[in-house]
């Protein structure tokens, strides 16, 4: 530490920052943040879509994650897994199917072709629910214990079921699979 106590020459009083500098700083910062945000938000996963969940199955392992997909109408079955009442169904996104066993009651608005968001994890076993014909049938299923319904921003009142199917397919929630009864 210095022991020289000779007074230093006075510093010039700092110049008042101009509005121009402020605007420049703000613009540069905004640009930097915009670049970061635009490039990064896609990676901040709240849920995996069905196709991604299948792709990442190895890296996910037995950890919990959130899954999104569109339930395929004809696959929905209510039944028992062991002693617990479950809902079994297959969801699809971008052409990939995932078989789901949901423990507990389904959400009130749970229905075919309206996307669901599910919390749970992968189980390396075919779903054991009587009457359930899994669409993916790949030796895995997703065991879920929390279900949300992700409704869209269409508020319509007509018997527009077919139309809704078409839109759902457009959005990636493919419904091309026709169940064999």
């Amino acid at each position: 530490m210095t022991t020289d106590l000779t007074p230093l020459p006075p510093r010039p009083r700092y110049a008042r920052r101009t509005a121009g500098l402020a605007v420049t700083v703000a613009l540069v910062a905004t640009a930097a943040v915009a670049v970061l945000v635009v490039n990064l938000v896609g990676g901040t996963l709240y849920f995996y879509n069905a196709d991604e969940a299948v792709e990442e199955r190895a890296s996910i392992g037995d950890r919990r994650f959130t899954l999104q997909g569109t339930p395929i109408g004809c696959s929905i079955v209510e039944g028992l897994s062991g002693n617990e009442s479950v809902v079994a169904f297959s969801v699809m996104f971008a052409g990939t199917a995932v078989d789901v066993v949901h423990f507990g009651d389904p959400a009130e608005l749970f229905q075919a072709d309206v996307s669901v968001v599910l919390d749970g994890g992968w189980v390396e076993q075919s779903p054991q629910v009587a009457g359930f014909a899994p669409l993916a049938n790949d030796g895995w299923h997703f065991a879920s214990d929390r279900m949300r319904v992700k409704h869209d921003n269409d508020y319509i009142n007509r018997e527009g079921y077919d139309e809704r199917l078409a839109r759902s397919a457009e959005a990636g929630g493919s419904t091309e699979v026709v169940c064999e009864a």
Partner: peptide
């Protein structure tokens, strides 16, 4: 920004179908 990554639906007024 988080399209297809949020539970909340998109804007009802600007691109909804009402």
């Amino acid at each position: 920004w988080w399209a297809n990554r949020t539970l909340h639906q998109r804007s009802s007024l600007t691109d909804g179908n009402l």
